[in-house]
Amino acid sequence: MEEDSVIDAEGETVFATGGELHTLEGHPVEVADPGMPQLDFSTYPNQIFWLIITLLVIYFVLSRIALPRIGSVLAERAGTITKDLASAEELKAKAKEAEASYEKALADARAEAGRIAEETRAEIQAELDAQLAKADAEIAARTAESRKELEVIRAEADAAAAEVARETAREIVATFGAGADPGKVDAAVDARTKG
C-alpha cells in the first residue's frame, strides 16, 4: 500500500509534465498518444520524406567528396610508403656498395703495404747477403793469408829442424870417428825426418 502511494505520488509528478505536454499540443488529433509513437502512422510520411532527403544528401556528399578524397589519400600514402621502402632499399644497397669499396680499398692498401714490406725485406736481404759475401770473402782472404804465413813459418821451422838434425847427425858421426861423407849423412837424415 505504501509503495503504491509512493508510486502514485511519483506518477502524479511525471504525469503532470506529460499532461502539460498534452495540453501544450492541445490537439485532439493526438489520440494515439497512449500508444507507441512508433505506430502513429500519421507521422510516417514526414519521417520517410526527411529520411530520403537525408540519405540522398549523405550519399552525394560521400560519393562526390568524401570517399574519393579519403581513397586518394590512402592510395597516395600507400604509394609513398612503398616508394620510401624502395628508396630505403636503394640506400641500403648503396651503403653496402660503399662498404664493399671501402673493404676493397683496405685490402688494396694492405696488399700494397705487404708488397712494400716484402720489397724492403728483399732489398735488405740482398744487401745483407752482399755484405755477408763480402765479409766471407775478406775472411777467406785473411784466412788464406794467415795460412800462407803459417805455411812459411812452418816451412822455416821445418828447415831449421832439419838443419839442426843434420848438424847433430854430422857431429855425432864425427864424434864416433867414422869419416863419413857429409852428403850421405845429410841425405839419410833428410830421409828419416821426412818420413
Binding site: 508510486i7 511519483e10 506518477g11 511525471v14 504525469f15 509534465t17 506529460g18 505536454l21 498518444d33 507507441m36 509513437p37 512508433q38 502513429d40 507521422t43 514526414n46 519521417q47
Partner: peptide, 10 residues
Amino acid sequence: VFHPLDQFIV
C-alpha cells in the same frame, strides 16, 4: 507512470 515512450513522439 513513467511515460518511457514519450521521448519518441514526433
